[in-house]
Structure formats: structure tokens, C-alpha cells
Simulated assay, not measured.
Amino acid sequence: MLYLDNSATTPILPEVKDKMITYLSEEYGNPSGKYYDLAINAEAAVKEARKQLSKLLNADEKEVIFTSGATESNNILLKGVAHYYSSQGKHIITSKAEHSAVLEVCEYLEENGFEVTYLDVDQFGRINSEELKNAIRQDTILVSIIWGNNELGSLNDIEAIAHVCEGKGVFLHTDATQVVGKIPLSWKDIKGLSFLSCSAHKMHGPKGVGALVIRKDRYGKLIPLTPLFHGGGQEEGIRSGTYSVHNIVGMGEAARIANNNLEKNTKHLTLLEDRLIEILTEKFSDNITFNSDRTNKIPGVINVRFIGLNNEVLLKKLSPIIAASTGSACSSAKPSHVLQAIGLDLKEVRESIRFSFSPYTNMEDVNIFKEL
């Protein structure tokens, strides 16, 4: 079977698994212990993983906070900023094409006295930075805009958005889950970006671990926010709880491998995408239309509409040979809000499928589409 649902999750790399097993079976110490070898070794492993991830992101190691994944990172950030800065304002800005882990938190905050502006997006799911600029008010405390859309692959211009937010003195958060490890990025060079969320399992690491990157202020301290968890004070007090060392080690190793192969992987993903588009266009011609843009996007993500075919029926028929999805794995029971946000009606949404490649997908395997 050809697995093309890598935007939902990726298979763990053998090198990552092997490294994790060591910290499940042999090096099982709690890094908070510090008085004996098993604890000291675990602490060193967490430190090394933090170094590997920060290198991929080009961030300071002290800015990287380990969490259980991007959903938790988004929750920590949105709720933490809302609570801590509520005396300064209760207005938040996001977009209609965000991941549900942002949108549902915003809905929760609305129920608790906050006002949220949901920006419109263009036909590929991108916001307009001028519209964002006009939406920012005196009581705006946070802007949260996804970097790379999980269903369409479209990239928002985070640098331009960060410039707007920096000029207005407003915090900017981005869910970068789909872009980390897939495109070059430099946290240090985007000064107006305050917070970033990501997960390991989107870049061939383990499930159950991610990170929240928090900008240091001019005094070298992390931007303060109210933590979601209170307890042992791990991760600068932002994320208390015993370290999941094996998962953190796995994320670090996945980050190291992604960083070492970034240029090669990006080129291969682009070639895979181009080849699939070529085959689909030749085979289905006027019976398909592409919802994704061809430029300024995450390589290897294609959202295509098969006109007149229900996506769930088609996916079930394809399932013995191809694994794909209708969109976000986190809200699979609902028609895609992202595709509705870009202007598709419900019929068109229910005709759309997302194919997402891995850099480890073989080019010759794409030829299976010729047999459909």
C-alpha cells in the first residue's frame, strides 16, 4: 500500500526508534533526579534533544519548551497568554483556516469573555497582512496564524505578518506543525514572531511529544504566560510534569535527521508532487480540479477535487492500495472548515482528497495512480 497521509502522521524512522528504545529499557532514569548516573544520563539526553531541535529551528535552546504535541502547545499558549494579559485586553485575532486545536481554543475563550476576530482567507487559505493590520486594535493581545496549512499546504507569509505584529506591539503565535522539518526556517530572524508550536510525529518522530518555542525578551527571560499545568516546575515552569525522555530523545533525533537532509528532502517532495499532478492531469483531465496552489507552499501536499465523486466512497475504494484522507485527522468526522473557508460549497468539499508525501516515498511508487 502506498501511504500518502503524511500530513496526518508519519512513520517513525528506524534510527529514531532505536534511540528511543535505549531510553525505554536501559536509560530509564528521571532527569529531575540528578544524583545518580541514570538521572544524569537522562538529563543529558533531554539537553541534547533540545539542542538538536533548536538547531533545526535556529532558536536558542532555552526558548524550546517540550510538550506532548502541538495541540498542547497551542492550548498552553492561547490560554496562557489570554489569562496572563487579560488586564491589557481581551481581543484575539486568528483566521478561518486554522487547525481545530487553535479554533476550538478560541471558541472556548469567547465563552469566557474574550472577543475573537476570524480573518477571511483567499482561495488557497492565506490571510492578507493588510487586513490583519486593520483588524489589530488597542485591546488586541495576540494574533495566531498557521504557518503552513495542514489541508492545502499553502504557506502564510509569516515574515510579513510578524512585521505587522511587531509594529503594532502585539504577540504573534504560529502553528508550524506542518512546516518544521519540511522547509527551511529561522526563528531568530523573524523578530516579531513570539511563539511557535510543533509536533514530532509530522517529521518521522514519535507521537506524544512536541514543543512550544517562546521568544526571550530583552532581559533574556521567556515571555511570561500562565502555565496550563502546575506541579514540579519543569520546562521553566511553563510545562510541569515528568519528562517523557524516550519521546523527547526521539523528537531530537528526528529533528537532527530532518535538518541534515532538509534540502534533499524538499527537492524530492517537490518532484513527487509534480509527478502526481502530471499523472492526475493526464488521466482525469477535466474531471478534477486542484484546491492547492502550485507555489509558495509546503512541498508534497496536494488537495484535489474529483468532480462528481464522494471523497469517503473513493477513499474506501482506494484503501487497499493507497492511504489518503479527506483533510485534518483531528476533525475527520466534519466537513472541512478549511475548504469551506476558501469558498468551496459542501458538495465540493465532499469531493476533495488530500494526498501528502514523505521524503521517503519512492518516485516509482507514484505510478500506481496510472492504474486507477
Rank of each mutant, 00 (worst) to 15 (best):
L193K: 00
D286E: 15
I248F: 07
S319V: 00
G33K: 07
I307L: 13
T10W: 04
I146R: 03
S186L: 08
G343D: 03
L132P: 01
I40W: 01
L269K: 06
S87A: 13
P31V: 08
A45H: 03
V338G: 06
G250M: 11
G29P: 04
S352L: 06
T71A: 15
W187H: 05
L280Q: 07
E364W: 05
S87H: 14
V366W: 00
I342E: 05
A135L: 01
E111L: 14
E235K: 09
C106M: 13
H337D: 07
R126S: 05
E253C: 11
M1Q: 07
V301A: 06
V209W: 06
R350I: 04
G220D: 08
S73M: 08
T94W: 03
E130V: 01
K216F: 04
R239K: 15
I238P: 08
F357V: 07
I342M: 10
A341N: 03
E371R: 11
R218P: 00
I321D: 02
T9I: 15
V170I: 10
E235W: 09
G169H: 01
I322P: 00
N362T: 11
L38P: 01
I322Y: 00
N150P: 13
Y3E: 00
D286M: 06
K191W: 09
A200W: 06
L185R: 08
V102Q: 01
I76L: 14
Y219Q: 11
V245P: 07
S352G: 09
R354Q: 12
C165K: 02
A39H: 13
V143H: 00
G29H: 11
L372H: 05
L142A: 02
L318I: 03
D37E: 14
H246K: 04
T71M: 15
K188F: 12
D293L: 10
L13I: 09
S25A: 12
R354C: 15
M251H: 05
G80D: 03
A333M: 09
H268P: 10
F357P: 10
I321Y: 02
Y219H: 14
S356I: 08
G208Y: 08
E63C: 12
W147K: 05
Y118S: 00
I238A: 03
S328Q: 05
I223K: 02
A39L: 06
I65K: 01
T361L: 04
F171L: 07
M363S: 12
E48M: 13
I40R: 15
S7H: 15
N58Y: 11
E312R: 15
V313S: 10
G308K: 01
E104T: 14
Q234R: 15
Q340M: 14
E351P: 03
S194A: 10
R256S: 15
L56Y: 06
A211I: 11
V143Y: 01
V349K: 05
N261P: 07
N303G: 14
E107N: 13
P224Y: 10
A59R: 04
K297D: 10
G89C: 00
F114L: 06
A160C: 02
L262I: 12
D120T: 05
V213Y: 04
D37M: 12
R239M: 14
E115V: 00
E235A: 07
A39V: 07
R275Q: 15
T140W: 06
A44Y: 04
H268W: 09
